[in-house]
C-alpha cells in the first residue's frame, strides 16, 4: 500500500497530491522489545504537518524510545512508521535521506566538541546535503541569529553555557531544513535559569509552524504550544488529549497521579 502510493507519487513527478498528505508522521501498531522487555506496546500515533505534540510520562515509560524510533535511532520489531508517507525501517537503503527530513535535539546536546560552533552547524549541510561551504556558513549564521547567539560562531561548544549549547544544537538541527523536529527532554540537563532561554527558542519555532514532537516535563510549554499531549506509561499511550483537557481533567488514575507529581513543584 505504501509502496504503491509512493510509486504513484513518483509517477506524478513531484506533484503535491499525495494519499497520505494528511499525516507527516503515522505510526501504526508499533511494538518494540529490548531483549525480553516489551518497551513499546501497540503504539498508534499520527502527526499532521505543523502540529506540536508533547509526550510526557514517568521515567521508563518508553517516551524517549518512541521518538527515537521515528528517526530509527532505535529499530522496532513490529508495526509501521511512515514519515511523509514513506515507510521507515532499519535496513532500508536510503535511510540517511529520510533521516535528513527529521531534525533531532538531545537531552545532552551532543554537540561535536572538536568542532567550532560554525563547523557544528555546517558539517551535515556540506557532507550530507551537499550545500556549498559559503552558503552553508551563511545559513548557519542565520540560524545562530534565530536562536539568539549570533556572536558565538567561532567558539567551541565547551566554551558555552548549557543553555547556549542546547540552542546551538537546535540551530544545528534546523540548518538542514527538516520537516519535523524531535526534542528528547531538551531542558532536563539544564540549570533552572537556562531552561527559559531554550524554551523561548522552542516556542518561537512552534509559532513559526514547525512540526514538533517533544518529550518534556515542561508543562508550561505544553500548555502554551502543544496541540495534543500524549501521556505514556508502561510502554503504552494511556491518554491523548488537548493540553487543557489533559491538565484539567485527566481520564485515568495514572494520568492524575503523574500530574499531581509533576505540578506539585
Amino acid at each position: 500500500m505504501t509502496r504503491h502510493s509512493h510509486d504513484f507519487q513518483n509517477n506524478l513527478n513531484g506533484t503535491e497530491i499525495m494519499q497520505d498528505a494528511e499525516d507527516i508522521i503515522r505510526i501504526d501498531e508499533l511494538n518494540k522489545w529490548y531483549g525480553e522487555f516489551h518497551v513499546l506496546q501497540d503504539i498508534n500515533l499520527t502527526v499532521k504537518p505543523g502540529e506540536k505534540i508533547v509526550i510526557c510520562g514517568p521515567s521508563g515509560s518508553g517516551k524517549s524510545t518512541l521518538i527515537r524510533c521515528i528517526n530509527q535511532l532505535e529499530t522496532h520489531q513490529m508495526g509501521v512508521i511512515r514519515i511523509d508517507g514513506q515507510e521507515i525501517h532499519a535496513d532500508m537503503k536510503n535511510i540517511e535521506a529520510l533521516r535528513a527530513k527529521v531534525g533531532m535535539v538531545f537531552q545532552n546536546f551532543n554537540l561535536y566538541p572538536h568542532l567550532s560552533v560554525l563547523e557544528n552547524l555546517t558539517l551535515a549541510q556540506i557532507w550530507v546535503h551537499r550545500v556549498p561551504r559559503r552558503e552553508a556558513e551563511e545559513r548557519a549564521r542565520h540560524y545562530l541569529a534565530r536562536v539568539h547567539i549570533p556572536d558565538q560562531a567561532e567558539k567551541f561548544p565547551g566554551q558555552l553555557s548549557g543553555g547556549q549549547q542546547q540552542r546551538v544544537a537546535i540551530a544545528r538541527a534546523l540548518c538542514t531544513k527538516p520537516q519535523i523536529m524531535l526534542f528528547d527532554e531538551p531542558t532536563s540537563a539544564l540549570d533552572p535559569e537556562m531552561i527559559k532561554e531554550v524554551l523561548d527558542v522552542m516556542i518561537e519555532l512552534a509559532q513559526e509552524g514547525m512540526t514538533m514532537v517533544c518529550v518534556t516535563h515542561e508543562m508550561g510549554f505544553a500548555r502554551k504550544v502543544a496541540n495534543r499531549v500524549v501521556f505514556m506509561d508502561g510502554g503504552r499511550i494511556v491518554e491523548e488529549a488537548e493540553p487543557e483537557e489533559f491538565f484539567q481533567n485527566p481520564q485515568t488514575d495514572r494520568g492524575r497521579l503523574f500530574l499531581s507529581q509533576v505540578l506539585e513543584h
Binding site: A97, V128, T176
Partner: peptide, 10 residues
C-alpha cells in the same frame, strides 16, 4: 556523538 551524527543523516 554517534547518535547526533546518525540523526543528522550521516
Amino acid at each position: 556523538q554517534f547518535e547526533a551524527a546518525t540523526a543528522s543523516g550521516m
